[in-house]
C-alpha cells in the first residue's frame, strides 16, 4: 500500500500515528515509534503505535529517561539493531516490563540527523525469529531510511520558524531534473538529455524529493511547481 504523504496532510497527532500504522502494514512490522527533538523550537515530539497499556506504563515508569533504544541509538549514524545495545540494567529494566506487555526486544532504531542540531529516531519492532528478522531488515532498510527522514523532517517543520528555515534548497541540477520529469521524461531520457548517468539522475532525484518533503516523484514535482521552483508545463 502507498504511504500517506505527511507533507500534504494536517499536522495532527493522529496523522502521524496513522502514518506509523501504515509503515507497520507496509513493511510487515508489529510496532513503530518516532521520537525527535527540535532545538530551534525547543520542542520534543513523540508518536507511537504501541498498545495503550504499554504507553501508559512506559510514561509512568519514566522509561523515556533510560530507554537505551532512544539514548544510545540516537548517537549512531547507522540503523541500530537492538541486539547491538549493551544488555545493561537499563536495558533489562525496560525490556523485562516490555515483555510483560507482549512487546518484543527484536527491533531496530534508525537515527536521523537534521541540519539545525535536530535529531530524531524511528524505531520498529517485530516479534519473529532472528532469521526472519534479518531477512526482513535487509529487504526494507533502504526504504525505512527514507521513511524515517520523511517523518522527522515533517515533524521538524511543524512550527513557523522551522518551516521558514527549511525552505527547500534545490540545486540547479535537482531543479533541471525535476523540470524534465515534469515534462514527462523517464529517468533514462533525462540522463540522455543531460548527458549524465542514470544513477546521477536517480541520486539527484532522490535528494530533490526529500528536500521537497515528498515520498514520491509526482508529489515532488507537484510541490516544486507550487513553490515556483520549476515551471508547470
Amino acid at each position: 500500500m502507498e504511504l500517506i504523504d505527511l507533507g500534504s496532510v494536517a499536522k495532527r497527532e493522529d496523522s502521524f500515528i496513522t502514518f506509523l500504522d501504515q509503515v507497520c502494514d507496509r513493511f510487515e512490522l508489529d510496532h513503530a515509534a518516532y521520537a525527535g527533538s527540535n532545538p530551534v523550537a525547543g520542542t520534543i515530539h513523540g508518536y507511537v503505535n504501541y498498545p495503550e497499556p504499554w504507553k501508559a506504563h512506559y510514561v509512568k515508569s519514566g522509561f523515556h529517561r533510560i530507554d537505551p533504544t532512544l539514548h544510545k541509538a540516537s548517537r549512531s549514524i547507522a540503523p541500530v539493531d537492538w541486539r547491538r545495545l549493551e544488555r545493561d540494567s537499563q536495558f533489562h529494566q525496560v525490556f523485562r516490563d516490555a515483555s510483560d506487555f507482549g512487546i518484543t526486544d527484536r527491533g531496530l532504531t534508525i537515527p536521523v540527523r537534521g541540519p539545525y542540531g535536530d535529531t530524531g529516531m524511528l524505531s520498529v519492532t517485530r516479534n519473529c525469529s532472528v532469521a526472519e528478522w534479518d531477512k526482513l531488515v535487509a529487504h526494507i532498510i533502504p526504504e525505512l531510511q527514507s521513511v524515517a527522514v520523511h517523518v522527522h523532517d515533517t515533524v521538524m517543520r511543524s512550527d513557523v520558524l522551522s518551516r521558514a528555515l527549511r525552505y527547500p534548497a534545490l540545486s540547479t541540477r535537482e531543479r533541471e531534473i525535476l523540470q524534465w520529469v515534469a515534462a514527462g521524461k523517464s529517468q533514462q531520457d533525462v540522463g540522455d538529455i543531460l548527458g549524465i548517468s542514470h544513477r546521477t539522475v536517480e541520486v539527484h532525484l532522490r535528494s530533490g524529493r526529500e528536500k521537497l518533503y515528498a515520498l514520491t516523484t509526482p508529489q515532488a514535482v507537484g510541490r516544486a511547481i507550487a513553490l515556483g521552483l520549476i515551471y508547470p508545463l
Partner: peptide
C-alpha cells in the same frame, strides 16, 4: 541529512550550489 563537510566546509567544491541531501 545533518551537518557534514560538503554542507559546512567544502561548499566551494559545489560551485555555490546546495549539497545533495538524502536519507540514503
Amino acid at each position: 541529512t545533518g551537518p557534514h563537510m560538503l554542507s559546512d566546509v567544502f561548499q566551494v567544491l559545489l560551485d555555490g550550489e546546495p549539497p545533495l541531501r538524502s536519507a540514503t
